[in-house]
Simulated assay, not measured.
Amino acid sequence: MTDSTPHYHGHRDRLRARFTEFGSEALPDYELLELVLFRSIPRRDVKPLAKELVKRFGSFAKVLAASPARLAEVPGVTAGIITDLKVVEAAGRRLARGEVTKRPVLSSWSSVIDYCRAAMAFMDKEQFRLLFLDKRNALIADEVQQSGTVDHTPVYPREVVKRALELSASALILVHNHPSGDPTPSSADVKMTREIIDVATPLGITIHDHIIVGREGHASLKGLKLI
Protein backbone atom coordinates (compact mmCIF):
# COMPACT_ATOMS: atom_id res chain seq x y z
CA MET A 1 0.00 0.00 0.00
CA THR A 2 1.50 3.32 -1.07
CA ASP A 3 1.19 6.59 0.79
CA SER A 4 -1.51 7.65 -1.68
CA THR A 5 -3.64 4.56 -1.06
CA PRO A 6 -6.63 5.33 1.20
CA HIS A 7 -6.22 3.85 4.68
CA TYR A 8 -9.45 1.89 4.47
CA HIS A 9 -8.17 -0.37 1.67
CA GLY A 10 -6.04 -2.37 4.08
CA HIS A 11 -8.94 -2.54 6.52
CA ARG A 12 -11.21 -3.91 3.80
CA ASP A 13 -8.69 -6.60 2.88
CA ARG A 14 -8.21 -7.63 6.51
CA LEU A 15 -11.97 -7.73 7.14
CA ARG A 16 -12.60 -9.86 4.04
CA ALA A 17 -9.80 -12.23 5.07
CA ARG A 18 -11.21 -12.59 8.59
CA PHE A 19 -14.67 -13.31 7.19
CA THR A 20 -13.26 -15.89 4.75
CA GLU A 21 -11.21 -17.67 7.41
CA PHE A 22 -13.52 -17.54 10.41
CA GLY A 23 -17.01 -16.82 9.05
CA SER A 24 -19.63 -14.29 10.08
CA GLU A 25 -19.65 -15.35 13.73
CA ALA A 26 -16.19 -13.81 14.13
CA LEU A 27 -17.49 -10.38 13.18
CA PRO A 28 -19.59 -7.95 15.21
CA ASP A 29 -22.73 -6.64 13.52
CA TYR A 30 -21.18 -3.41 12.27
CA GLU A 31 -18.30 -5.23 10.56
CA LEU A 32 -20.66 -7.64 8.81
CA LEU A 33 -22.59 -4.59 7.65
CA GLU A 34 -19.34 -3.05 6.42
CA LEU A 35 -18.87 -6.05 4.12
CA VAL A 36 -22.27 -5.35 2.58
CA LEU A 37 -21.53 -1.63 2.24
CA PHE A 38 -18.17 -2.24 0.53
CA ARG A 39 -20.01 -2.96 -2.73
CA SER A 40 -22.38 -0.03 -2.30
CA ILE A 41 -19.61 2.46 -1.48
CA PRO A 42 -16.40 1.34 -3.21
CA ARG A 43 -14.33 4.45 -2.53
CA ARG A 44 -15.04 5.60 1.00
CA ASP A 45 -14.51 4.45 4.59
CA VAL A 46 -17.83 2.78 5.45
CA LYS A 47 -17.13 1.98 9.10
CA PRO A 48 -18.72 5.20 10.48
CA LEU A 49 -21.91 4.61 8.48
CA ALA A 50 -22.07 0.94 9.47
CA LYS A 51 -21.69 1.85 13.15
CA GLU A 52 -24.34 4.57 12.87
CA LEU A 53 -26.84 2.19 11.24
CA VAL A 54 -26.36 -0.48 13.91
CA LYS A 55 -26.56 2.16 16.65
CA ARG A 56 -29.77 3.60 15.25
CA PHE A 57 -31.61 0.36 14.49
CA GLY A 58 -30.08 -1.99 17.07
CA SER A 59 -28.54 -4.88 15.11
CA PHE A 60 -27.51 -6.14 11.68
CA ALA A 61 -30.88 -7.89 11.27
CA LYS A 62 -32.82 -4.78 12.25
CA VAL A 63 -30.88 -2.67 9.74
CA LEU A 64 -31.84 -5.09 6.96
CA ALA A 65 -35.48 -5.16 8.10
CA ALA A 66 -35.83 -1.39 8.43
CA SER A 67 -38.16 0.24 5.95
CA PRO A 68 -36.62 2.15 3.02
CA ALA A 69 -38.13 5.36 4.38
CA ARG A 70 -36.42 4.94 7.77
CA LEU A 71 -33.11 3.97 6.18
CA ALA A 72 -33.24 7.06 3.99
CA GLU A 73 -33.38 9.23 7.12
CA VAL A 74 -29.80 8.24 7.97
CA PRO A 75 -27.25 10.71 6.51
CA GLY A 76 -25.14 9.03 3.86
CA VAL A 77 -27.65 6.31 2.99
CA THR A 78 -28.43 6.51 -0.72
CA ALA A 79 -31.05 4.77 -2.83
CA GLY A 80 -28.34 2.39 -4.03
CA ILE A 81 -27.42 1.43 -0.46
CA ILE A 82 -31.06 0.82 0.40
CA THR A 83 -31.45 -1.45 -2.63
CA ASP A 84 -28.33 -3.44 -1.70
CA LEU A 85 -29.53 -3.88 1.89
CA LYS A 86 -32.94 -5.05 0.68
CA VAL A 87 -31.31 -7.55 -1.69
CA VAL A 88 -29.41 -9.06 1.25
CA GLU A 89 -32.61 -9.16 3.30
CA ALA A 90 -34.46 -10.88 0.46
CA ALA A 91 -31.64 -13.39 0.03
CA GLY A 92 -31.83 -14.29 3.73
CA ARG A 93 -35.57 -14.82 3.51
CA ARG A 94 -35.23 -16.92 0.35
CA LEU A 95 -32.63 -19.15 2.01
CA ALA A 96 -34.81 -19.63 5.08
CA ARG A 97 -37.84 -20.36 2.92
CA GLY A 98 -35.83 -22.95 0.99
CA GLU A 99 -35.28 -24.90 4.20
CA VAL A 100 -39.04 -24.95 4.79
CA THR A 101 -39.94 -26.18 1.29
CA LYS A 102 -37.43 -29.04 1.21
CA ARG A 103 -39.42 -31.42 3.38
CA PRO A 104 -42.69 -31.81 5.32
CA VAL A 105 -43.09 -28.76 7.51
CA LEU A 106 -43.93 -30.58 10.75
CA SER A 107 -40.69 -32.58 10.57
CA SER A 108 -38.61 -29.43 10.17
CA TRP A 109 -40.21 -27.20 12.78
CA SER A 110 -37.03 -25.32 13.67
CA SER A 111 -36.68 -24.30 10.01
CA VAL A 112 -40.26 -23.02 10.05
CA ILE A 113 -39.51 -20.89 13.10
CA ASP A 114 -36.27 -19.61 11.55
CA TYR A 115 -38.12 -18.67 8.38
CA CYS A 116 -40.95 -16.90 10.20
CA ARG A 117 -38.51 -14.92 12.30
CA ALA A 118 -36.41 -13.98 9.26
CA ALA A 119 -39.50 -12.85 7.39
CA MET A 120 -41.33 -10.96 10.12
CA ALA A 121 -39.63 -10.58 13.50
CA PHE A 122 -38.13 -7.14 12.88
CA MET A 123 -40.98 -5.47 11.01
CA ASP A 124 -42.34 -2.22 12.43
CA LYS A 125 -45.95 -3.09 11.58
CA GLU A 126 -48.07 -6.15 12.28
CA GLN A 127 -48.45 -8.66 9.50
CA PHE A 128 -50.60 -11.80 9.36
CA ARG A 129 -49.11 -14.63 7.33
CA LEU A 130 -50.53 -18.01 6.29
CA LEU A 131 -48.56 -21.16 5.52
CA PHE A 132 -50.78 -23.49 3.47
CA LEU A 133 -49.98 -27.21 3.65
CA ASP A 134 -51.08 -30.24 1.64
CA LYS A 135 -52.03 -33.69 2.96
CA ARG A 136 -48.34 -34.57 3.44
CA ASN A 137 -47.83 -31.32 5.36
CA ALA A 138 -45.63 -29.95 2.57
CA LEU A 139 -45.82 -26.23 1.89
CA ILE A 140 -48.20 -25.30 -0.93
CA ALA A 141 -48.06 -21.54 -0.51
CA ASP A 142 -46.87 -18.83 1.84
CA GLU A 143 -48.97 -15.69 1.71
CA VAL A 144 -49.33 -12.45 3.64
CA GLN A 145 -53.07 -12.14 4.22
CA GLN A 146 -53.19 -8.82 6.03
CA SER A 147 -50.89 -5.99 7.08
CA GLY A 148 -51.87 -3.61 9.84
CA THR A 149 -50.55 -1.01 12.24
CA VAL A 150 -47.92 -1.19 14.95
CA ASP A 151 -50.22 -3.18 17.23
CA HIS A 152 -53.16 -4.50 15.22
CA THR A 153 -53.90 -6.50 12.08
CA PRO A 154 -57.51 -7.18 11.03
CA VAL A 155 -58.05 -10.89 10.38
CA TYR A 156 -61.23 -12.40 8.94
CA PRO A 157 -61.59 -16.13 9.69
CA ARG A 158 -63.87 -16.84 6.71
CA GLU A 159 -61.39 -15.19 4.33
CA VAL A 160 -58.59 -17.33 5.75
CA VAL A 161 -60.55 -20.54 5.24
CA LYS A 162 -61.82 -19.44 1.82
CA ARG A 163 -58.23 -19.03 0.62
CA ALA A 164 -57.30 -22.46 2.03
CA LEU A 165 -60.13 -24.02 0.05
CA GLU A 166 -59.03 -22.21 -3.12
CA LEU A 167 -55.55 -23.72 -2.74
CA SER A 168 -56.91 -27.18 -1.75
CA ALA A 169 -54.93 -26.92 1.48
CA SER A 170 -55.47 -29.56 4.14
CA ALA A 171 -53.83 -27.62 6.95
CA LEU A 172 -52.64 -24.17 7.95
CA ILE A 173 -50.03 -22.60 10.16
CA LEU A 174 -50.95 -19.06 11.21
CA VAL A 175 -48.12 -16.59 11.79
CA HIS A 176 -48.01 -12.98 12.85
CA ASN A 177 -45.50 -10.62 14.41
CA HIS A 178 -45.49 -8.33 17.41
CA PRO A 179 -43.50 -5.17 16.56
CA SER A 180 -43.16 -4.48 20.29
CA GLY A 181 -40.68 -7.37 20.35
CA ASP A 182 -42.58 -9.41 22.95
CA PRO A 183 -44.18 -12.48 21.32
CA THR A 184 -46.52 -13.20 24.23
CA PRO A 185 -50.01 -13.95 22.82
CA SER A 186 -52.77 -11.49 23.65
CA SER A 187 -56.32 -12.52 24.49
CA ALA A 188 -57.31 -11.17 21.06
CA ASP A 189 -54.73 -13.45 19.41
CA VAL A 190 -56.17 -16.48 21.16
CA LYS A 191 -59.77 -15.51 20.40
CA MET A 192 -59.04 -14.95 16.71
CA THR A 193 -57.22 -18.28 16.44
CA ARG A 194 -60.10 -20.18 18.00
CA GLU A 195 -62.55 -18.47 15.63
CA ILE A 196 -60.50 -19.64 12.63
CA ILE A 197 -60.40 -23.17 14.04
CA ASP A 198 -64.18 -23.12 14.48
CA VAL A 199 -64.66 -22.21 10.81
CA ALA A 200 -61.92 -24.50 9.43
CA THR A 201 -62.55 -27.73 11.34
CA PRO A 202 -66.01 -28.60 9.87
CA LEU A 203 -64.45 -28.23 6.40
CA GLY A 204 -61.65 -30.68 7.14
CA ILE A 205 -58.91 -28.07 7.44
CA THR A 206 -56.51 -28.47 10.36
CA ILE A 207 -54.92 -25.50 12.12
CA HIS A 208 -51.58 -26.89 13.27
CA ASP A 209 -50.46 -23.83 15.19
CA HIS A 210 -50.41 -20.07 15.49
CA ILE A 211 -46.86 -18.76 15.81
CA ILE A 212 -46.15 -15.25 17.06
CA VAL A 213 -42.69 -13.85 16.38
CA GLY A 214 -40.88 -10.85 17.78
CA ARG A 215 -37.37 -9.56 18.32
CA GLU A 216 -37.28 -11.33 21.68
CA GLY A 217 -38.19 -14.77 20.33
CA HIS A 218 -41.36 -16.59 19.39
CA ALA A 219 -44.45 -18.11 20.99
CA SER A 220 -46.54 -21.09 19.89
CA LEU A 221 -50.20 -21.09 20.90
CA LYS A 222 -50.22 -24.87 20.61
CA GLY A 223 -47.06 -25.14 22.69
CA LEU A 224 -48.64 -22.93 25.32
CA LYS A 225 -51.78 -25.13 25.18
CA LEU A 226 -53.94 -22.15 24.27
CA ILE A 227 -55.46 -24.02 21.33
Rank of each mutant, 00 (worst) to 15 (best):
D114P: 08
Y115A: 01
Y115N: 01
Y115M: 02
C116P: 15
R117M: 15
A118N: 14
A118G: 13
A119D: 10
M120I: 04
A121R: 11
A121T: 07
M123W: 07
M123N: 11
D124Y: 05
D124K: 10
D124T: 10
D124A: 09
D124H: 06
E126T: 04
E126V: 04
E126C: 08
F128I: 07
F128D: 07
F128H: 10
F128W: 12
R129P: 00
L130G: 04
L130P: 11
F132T: 00
F132Y: 10
D134I: 00
D134E: 01
R136Q: 14
R136I: 12
R136V: 14
N137M: 14
A138M: 15
L139E: 00
A141I: 00
A141N: 02
D142P: 09
E143A: 12
E143W: 05
V144D: 02
V144S: 02
V144E: 01
Q145V: 06
Q145T: 05
S147E: 15
G148T: 01
G148M: 01
T149D: 00
T149I: 00
T149G: 00
V150Q: 03
V150M: 02
V150G: 01
D151L: 01
D151G: 03
T153N: 03
T153A: 09
P154V: 06
P154A: 06
V155I: 12
V155Q: 07
Y156V: 14
Y156E: 12
P157A: 11
P157Q: 13
E159W: 15
E159Q: 13
E159G: 14
V160Q: 08
V160E: 14
V160S: 11
V160F: 09
V161W: 05
K162S: 13
A164W: 11
L165P: 11
E166L: 07
L167T: 04
L167H: 08
L167G: 08
S168K: 13
S168C: 08
S168N: 12
S170A: 03
S170Q: 03
A171F: 02
A171E: 03
L172A: 02
L174P: 07
L174Y: 09
V175E: 10
V175Y: 11
H176R: 07
H176V: 04
H176Y: 12
N177I: 04
H178G: 06
H178I: 05
H178W: 06
